[in-house]
């Protein structure tokens, strides 16, 4: 089966700084990929390039057979995204966000409202549907961004740190939902720092460090020998140089 996501030498430079350095990656349909890396490794930059939020300096990404450089609109029809910034309109209500996005993806108003109702009820947002995004809590905003990403039933889902800042109940709802989506064949590209969650969800792991992919394999293979995901991650990413520093002045009298 041909890959549904292919990255060819994808690079991004910010002035002299190389954020992503010519990465190549192929992801089969239905994969639940955990894309991990330390802070500043290039995770968010990669997701932003693949989803059309940031132009690559070099290389290309093919999503479901469409190039993000040449056919960005065709790519966006196939994907749902929870970006790092969430990209919510401050003065639109939760309900208005979903009805706007659903119809832009070509759903009828009836279908959009039906899906919006179900999503808001599933994510525990129904009672707050009249709240403006700017007045919503961080967790509510995260859940709204997820609902927006799902409303058009995308084939591929990109989630940039979706578990940050949400409560345990919402976390469980989100985990169950993602597991169900994965089982139904949706390809999921997840970045997260919460290794326990990643460990429970993904079937393939890619680790990026300083803009380069340093590890890419199935989770089952990586865990042979009984290593935890934390050990795998630290082994691939390297120990922080500052780990030995003691702050003796902290916590004293």
């Amino acid at each position: 089966m041909p890959p549904i996501i292919t990255l060819h030498g994808l690079s991004r430079h910010f002035g002299d700084k190389i954020a992503v350095d010519a990465i190549d990656l192929e992801i089969a349909p239905g994969t639940f990929l955990g894309f991990l890396g330390p802070n500043g490794a290039g995770k968010t930059t990669t997701v932003r390039m693949i989803t059309g939020l940031l132009a690559p300096t070099a290389g290309d990404a093919e999503i479901a057979g469409h190039s993000i450089r040449r056919e960005p609109v065709a790519v966006k029809r196939q994907i749902g995204v929870v970006p790092d910034t969430l990209a919510l309109f401050d003065r639109l209500s939760l309900w208005e966000h979903l009805t706007l996005v659903g119809q832009v993806y070509g759903l009828s108003s009836t279908e959009t409202e039906s899906r919006a109702t179900e999503l808001l009820q599933l994510l525990g947002l129904w009672d707050d549907r009249a709240t403006y995004a700017v007045d919503a809590s961080h967790g509510m905003r995260k859940k709204l961004a997820l609902a927006i990403a799902l409303i058009h039933a995308p084939r591929i889902l990109f989630l940039d740190e979706p578990f940050e800042g949400i409560d345990p109940i919402a976390g469980k709802v989100l985990r169950d939902l993602l597991r169900r989506l994965s089982q139904s064949g949706t390809t999921i590209f997840l970045t997260s720092h919460i290794l326990e969650v990643v460990e429970r969800l993904v079937d393939r792991l890619t680790i990026i460090v300083k803009g380069r992919i340093v590890l890419d394999d199935s989770l089952a293979t990586l865990r042979q020998g009984g290593r935890s995901l934390e050990e795998i991650f630290i082994g691939a990413a390297g120990v922080d140089a500052a780990a030995g520093v003691e702050l003796k002045w902290l916590g004293g009298e």
């Binding site: 989803t51 609109v73 966006k76 029809r77 990209a87 309109f89 832009v104 993806y105």
Partner: peptide
């Protein structure tokens, strides 16, 4: 101007 950072939302939608 009124969109602020939400300008990204337009780029995520299938719009030119």
């Amino acid at each position: 101007g009124l969109d602020g950072k939400a300008v990204d939302r337009y780029r995520l939608l299938p719009l030119s």
